[in-house]
Write a protein that binds this DNA or RNA. Structure first.
Length: 389
RNA sequence: GGCGGAGUAGCUCAGUGGUAGAGCAGGGGACUCAUAAGCCCUUGGUCACAGGUUCAAAUCCUGUCUCCGCUACCA
């Protein structure tokens, strides 16, 4: 049953910003990304922009609109608000929450530091608000638009269908966290899903990805490294060498990782990191520390040096991986570093501590002595696939 | 209706003119430090379909089918 309503609303003059928005898109090709999303928004701008309502009348809830009909404040002398002015449309108020959270207008220093943001990351369903409405609103307040807005896609169910409760084809985040852990969910989601578009996912694809990457490759690499260093060297942390093949592999992996991060292609960033995991695992099988250890016991002095160098390189590889992967595996990173005898240098929220690129230099702490702990699996393998929720 | 994207190995995808690729899954092998993980080798595809251009097409052009995104209109 449709019911026609007539109500008094305030409008934002979006139409006045058409040309400036189009110019902004054209002059700043990176401001809205990926490209095809940018093109969609540009198309919307070019077909013409209409003013849109920013207040609601007669709402029984909501934040009071601050301006009265005559343009004066809608707040009465007793502090109450004139209900006739209406309430603020939530999407208009949302931007106000953003900027006041960043310090506007009472903390100009904080606001100068945090605004405009280097990067807004949003879902594709709210692209128009963040890339058209909000920039125009910000300009109308003499503020700057974000430097870059990245629009990510959705996780789709089998067959490319949108997940929905009514269809029953959704993956329950709580079940996923129970099975994979919070870090595991972060990993499989950001590795399995292309961050610039929609991707089909399934419970099985997550389990396969978790087992193959986190349990078998990464977790096992750390485990075998810590285990061998403890067994062969008594737990004293071996220093990395300066001329090994693992170092060379890292010098290739780090720029690839960094470039993908800066391009917001998080799945490619993780792929670059895990290519290095593979290199480290192959390094183990190539150098065969267990054979070196036997040679050491047989009195081979050269083998002793070699063994320390090989395990030192592997420990260093694990340190670098733990730190580089920390944004994706924030709970695991400190546990990994602890097994290597290193203190995790960042706060739980990721802030504080030294510049990450300094920490990600090969051999950054080569001269620091330390003691490894007993190995403890970071990502237990899921042998039996949990029942699909 | 307009604009745009996609259709390549069982799965997820890369590959924009020069003899089809990766990861995972599957199969085999040699090892043994390790979470029966890791390493090595390997099976597997008329590149949606039909035409065309070219010495040569997954790649360029035309048409068709299917799916998806943005947007509009009809009512």
């Amino acid at each position: 049953m449709l019911q026609w309503l007539t109500e008094k609303n305030w409008f934002f003059r979006l139409s006045a910003y058409r040309d400036r928005l189009e110019r902004w898109f054209l002059d700043n090709p990176d401001a809205v990304q990926p490209d095809y999303r940018r093109n969609e928004m540009l198309g919307f701008i070019r077909q013409g922009l209409e003013d849109f309502s920013i207040s609601r009348a007669g709402a029984t809830w909501g934040i009071p609109f601050p301006i009265g009909e005559g343009g004066q404040t809608a707040q009465r002398e007793d502090g109450s608000w004139d209900a006739e002015a209406g309430t603020i449309y939530v999407w208009y108020d949302a931007l106000i929450n953003y900027i006041t959270g960043a310090g506007f207008p009472d903390d100009p220093d904080a606001f100068a530091r945090w605004w405009p943001a280097d990067l807004h990351v949003i879902g594709k369903d709210i692209a128009r608000f963040h890339t058209i409405y909000w920039p125009a609103m910000l300009w109308s307040a003499s503020l700057e638009a974000p430097r870059k807005v990245w629009i990510h896609g959705w996780l789709l169910a089998a067959g490319g269908e949108r997940m929905s409760k009514s269809r029953g084809n959704f993956l329950d985040p709580h079940d996923a966290v129970t099975a994979f852990g919070a870090d595991g969910v972060r990993y499989v989601t950001l590795r399995e899903v292309a961050f610039d578009r929609d991707t089909e996912v399934s419970w099985d694809s997550f389990v396969r990805r978790y087992n193959a990457d986190l349990a078998n490759d990464f977790g096992n690499l750390v485990n075998r490294t810590v285990s061998m260093a403890g067994r062969y060297l008594g737990g004293e942390r071996p220093a990395p060498t300066d001329g090994g093949s693992l170092r060379v592999a890292w010098l290739h992996a780090l720029p690839a990782y960094r470039g993908a991060i800066e391009g917001c292609l998080l799945h490619e960033a993780l792929a670059a990191l895990f290519e290095f995991v593979g290199a480290a695992n192959r390094f183990v099988d190539l150098e065969k520390p267990w054979e070196l250890s036997k040679a050491v016991k047989a009195g081979d002095a050269d083998a002793a040096d070699r063994l320390r160098g090989v395990l030192g390189d592997l420990v260093e590889a694990c340190r670098l991986l733990g730190l580089a992967a920390a944004p994706f595996l924030p709970n695991t990173a400190p546990r990994l570093l602890a097994q290597l005898g290193y203190a995790y240098p960042y706060r739980p929220d990721g802030n504080g501590g030294p510049a990450i690129l300094d920490e990600l230099a090969w051999g950054a702490h080569a001269a620091v002595p330390g003691t490894l702990t007993a190995p403890e699996p970071l990502f237990p393998r899921l042998d039996v696939e949990p029942a699909e929720p």
